[in-house]
Structures are given as structure tokens and as C-alpha cells.
Design a protein around this nucleic acid. Structure first.
Lengths: 187, 187
DNA sequence: CGATTCCTTTTACAAATGTTAAATAATCAC
DNA sequence: GTGATTATTTAACATTTGTAAAAGGAATCG
């Protein structure tokens, strides 16, 4: 749990009592590559913190597998739109590299909010940061060309080196063929 | 202020004391069409609630004016990425129809959070809903064609009827010419 | 190790969107 | 109202991206 609390401290430090309460709504899980952590149609009730490994959020558009998000070590992965609305998610979470995660039970977590305003604030700040990230992602998708977006991704070696190109292509909003063409230009 | 409190009540009802405190950080302003409410480079410190009128958030990409967001009556308009990060915004807010707004001073608002956890929760829920909206917008941009997005916009008559097409085009992520072609198909 | 499957690239062609410029149409300011 | 400005449409052509099919590489499983 140390990595998780270190992560929390970046946003809003917690008191020992709050940490104890937080630990009470968490459990550690181990997952294998390829595994579907949460399937399509399932309502999100868990926030995952990745201690090691890689995962992605994906869904199907007209039968094609589309990756929406990648998450690596020391980051959360959540299907926010389902967690916040309580509606079943159209997206799934899949493990891309064997992973160790902390599963945070959202319903129990939310019950802590009344007793520990610090915890409510912590998650408010975490999700605000995620919100800003989503806005930047949206700008990048809407207003940059596929090539510009690929160039930007090169600054995240993790993604380029650890993720199959077919997932990167759909993440960039283009086809595998198109990504292959873009890569060929730089050689 | 009644419209504003009615808006708040949809998310999380407030006590009379909290309402009084909220009223203390608000003031009503009147704006003319064309006016720049907040310029590019300015750090967002105000949340606006639109009582009447229309506004947009826009910025420049390679010299072209790009609309990111439209807001109508009974909605907030904020440059979230600047409000949450404290960084100067690359975006501006412009009035598209004469407007009456409630300006909420963000710094003073945030100071109320410690005294009124209800207010913190209110704005947490408001911004969570905005976050979900942003995720849906992102999905729509990435995974639907321009024509599909235009068809979806037709379900928002406000946007089609009250906003110049050139702004709608950049909002859809296409050129004016391209939008004009799409519209011509349906005639 | 060999066979199978999955991943990536390449090719040829089709479709969508961008660019530039010009023609209309609508709106605004005096 | 009238002239000037701004908004929208149309046309021709260029560029980008998609689609389908095939082939070469890499990874995986028994």
C-alpha cells in the first residue's frame, strides 16, 4: 500500500486515521496479461491503482476494437463515466502486462466522505487532475493531425515500447495502416 | 440568483447558511454580443453562470479560430483546465448573444470549502458531471465521422439555430467548407 | 522444434476532408 | 436605406486517411 499512499500524498496528504480507513476499502490483486479486469456492460464500482503492469480501457465501435486509455505503474485506472453516472459502462479494462493492483471499492470509499472530508477532497483533486488530462486529450484529438499526435506520443516511451501498435493506432484515432505509413515517413 | 440556486439544487441542495455564503462570492454582470469576457493568457479565477445569452470558449490553432465549447442559459461556463491548474489559459470566453451572468469568484468560493463541506461537494458533483460530458465529447470526436457529429448536433436546435456555422464547423473539428458540403447532402 | 496465430508493413485503390478562390447571401453600421 | 463587412456556399484540385488484400515477421503453444 506504500506506493498508493505516496501517490495520494502528491495530491492531498492524509492523516493516519484516514489512511487506516482507506486501507479498509482496499485489497491487492494480481492479474495476468490478456485478462479482462472489468467487462463491457459492467457498472464501474472499483478504482484500480497499478503497482506494476499495464492496462488499457477499450471498447467496440462498429465491431472494431478501440483503445481509449493506457495506464502504467503508479497510476489509477477507472471508467470514470460509469463511476460518476452509475450507468453500465460500454468500455472494458484489459491487462496488457502481468499486473499487481490495489482495488479500491468505490461504494465503501464514498461512504468515508462524510466522516473524512480530507478523503473526499483527496479524490476530488485526483479526479480534477484526470479531468484536465481528458481536456488536453480532447484538444489533441480534435486539433492535431495524426502525425502530430504520433510525434507527441514518442515523448512517452512507455507507450511506444510496451504497447502493440494496433492499440496505439486506435488510441490515436487512426487505422493500423495509417499509423504504419506515418512511421515509415520517419525512416 | 434564483436560477443559480435552482441549478445548484439539481446537483446537491444547499442550506440557507451555505446559500448566503455563496451569494457573498457572486455578482451579476451584463455583457454585449462580441465582447471578450476573459482573454487568452488570463488565468481563470471566475466561474460564470449564464442567466441569459450565449457564450463560447475558443482559441487559436495555427492562426485559426477554433471553438471548443458553447454554453447557453442555465449553464456554467469555465475554462476548467486553467481553473484547476492555476496556469494561464490558452483559451478565451466570448459572448455570442447579449448576456446576463452570475460571476462566481473562484478563490473566495474555494475558501468556503473548509467551512461548508456541502459547498465543496456541490462543486465536486458539478465538475464531475462536466468531466463526464468532456469524456463523451472526446469519444464523439474520435470515433464518429464529421457527418455523424453534425447529425448529433441537429438534436441540439439551440446550437444550430443560434450559433454561426463557422463556429459550429470548428467545434465539430472540420472546416467551414466541409460543413457546408455535409449540409448540402441533406437537401 | 514446428505450426499456428497474431502483429506489422506494404500496395493499390476509394472516400473523406483540406485548401484556395470566387460567387452569393446575410448582417451590420452609419 | 445603402455601402461595407461578414457569413455561407460552391467549385476545382490536392492531400490525408480509410479499406481490402497480401506478405513478411514475431510471438506463442504444444
Amino acid at each position: 500500500m506504500n506506493e498508493l499512499f505516496a501517490y495520494f500524498d502528491q495530491f492531498y496528504p492524509q492523516t493516519p486515521e484516514a489512511k487506516l480507513a482507506l486501507a479498509g476499502v482496499c485489497n491487492v490483486i494480481f492479474l495476468k496479461k490478456g485478462e479482462i479486469l472489468q467487462p463491457i456492460g459492467h457498472t464501474c464500482k472499483t478504482i484500480y491503482f497499478i503497482k506494476s503492469g499495464v492496462a488499457r480501457i477499450y471498447y467496440y465501435k462498429d465491431g472494431t476494437d478501440i483503445t481509449e486509455y493506457f495506464a502504467f505503474e503508479n497510476n489509477l485506472i477507472v471508467r470514470v463515466e460509469s463511476l460518476f453516472t452509475g450507468m453500465p459502462s460500454k468500455k472494458a479494462i484489459q491487462i496488457l502486462e502481468d499486473a499487481e493492483m490495489v482495488a479500491i471499492q468505490a461504494t465503501s470509499l464514498f461512504e468515508l466522505y462524510d466522516t473524512f472530508p480530507r478523503i473526499e477532497r483527496l479524490f476530488r483533486l485526483i479526479f480534477e487532475a484526470a479531468h484536465v488530462e481528458t481536456i488536453h486529450r480532447m484538444e489533441s484529438i480534435q486539433f492535431h493531425t495524426a502525425e502530430e499526435r504520433y510525434q507527441a506520443l514518442l515523448l512517452h516511451p512507455d507507450i511506444i515500447q510496451r504497447i502493440p501498435l494496433k492499440h496505439i493506432a486506435s488510441y490515436l484515432g487512426i487505422t493500423q495502416v495509417s499509423l504504419s505509413r506515418i512511421r515509415a515517413l520517419r525512416r
